[in-house]
Design a protein around this nucleic acid. Structure first.
Lengths: 182, 182
DNA sequence: CCTAGTTGTAATTCACTGATAACAAGTTCG
DNA sequence: CGAACTTGTTATCAGTGAATTACAACTAGG
């Protein structure tokens, strides 16, 4: 394990942010304690606050971070082949880092907080536009693509898909259809 | 307004449960304070706890309640015409009571709590089965139907559709495609 | 080497929140 | 009526969790 050495504030900030993404993804905005993030990052709770100001600002940073990563994954997938089908195939890559979609989901759930709502609306709109730009998909096709993503997201939150999934018949039946088109 | 008269515990429980559905739908499980539910229901906070035991049990009751209502809406829609298209058309009816899908969403988000996770998995699986039974839809069709529902749910949470929606171009473009099939 | 700035923690605060206890008022029924 | 039960409140508690302050330890540059 890394010896606990001194880092610059910027470097430590990155580590704390990564811990925050994991923690918020698992427990949501209200459900995650800053102390838990601190323990994950291996620093004291007050230092987490000092680095990011408030818990809300840390959550916003986490949302921005996961959205950047999601966009990056879509761009990489589109580079291989700029078709929706390819992007869809790459949901696997998103589900390999479940915290990405989960943080986003918890952002939706916390949208009543005006600052969080603004951020989430802006980023989700941007993802919609990006999908269309990258693939040339029609609004309808992009809608179906995002809808599938949202279903996978909530199933991931329910823990019926992903690493710690209890295997349920209906969940497997549902995911087995992911390649099909009606 | 109704004079504050004495009711039986069962009757008052119904009122508190309705208030809880509204409050949990708006602010989520962790984000909702029992005191807020109490004020909405017009009773004292300790009485809310006495009627339902714990906040968690009250949330579980709210989840059960909204799932019952969702199933009821699907059944009614299927009675008119047992086709997926009809059911889809009736998302309007679900969106007319936004708290239904929002409570469910917050249930997904709170699924790490084992009791909540169990309830949510069970009810969502049941809704999937119900949709297939009522309409004879294939797994793929049912998946697309539920995926659309999840997209609408998160858009409702983001407040880009529904009563208090700030109108955003991408959101309107997206919802305008709801009738279309690829 | 020593002063100024930076990284980090321990101790503490302060508001909040779910839950309990004690009690008051109304109702039911023999 | 009046004892037993039910409905509901007020007062309070114990725990928690975000945020502040004060301080310690390390580092760099003149």
């Amino acid at each position: 394990m890394g010896a606990k050495m001194r880092l610059t504030a910027a470097e430590r900030g990155v580590e704390v942010l990564e811990a925050a993404v994991q923690a918020f993804g698992a427990s949501g905005y209200e459900g995650t304690k800053t102390d838990e993030i601190a323990r994950l990052a291996g620093v004291s709770q007050p230092y987490v606050i000092r680095l990011f100001g408030t818990k809300q600002q840390l959550f916003l940073a986490a949302v921005q971070s996961v959205c950047d990563r999601i966009e990056q994954i879509f761009r990489e997938a589109a580079e291989e082949s700029p078709e929706l089908r390819t992007l869809g195939h790459n949901y696997e890559r998103l589900l390999a880092e479940p915290e990405l979609l989960l943080v986003l989901l918890h952002g939706f759930s916390a949208s009543r907080d005006p600052a969080i709502g603004d951020a989430v609306r802006e980023r989700f709109g941007r993802i919609y536009s990006l999908v269309r730009e990258l693939t040339g998909a029609s609004p309808t096709e992009a809608r179906e693509f995002l809808a599938t993503g949202m279903l996978l997201t909530v199933m991931s939150a329910m823990q019926v898909i992903g690493p710690d999934a209890a295997s349920l018949p209906w969940a497997e039946e549902l995911t087995s259809t992911l390649g099909d088109t009606k």
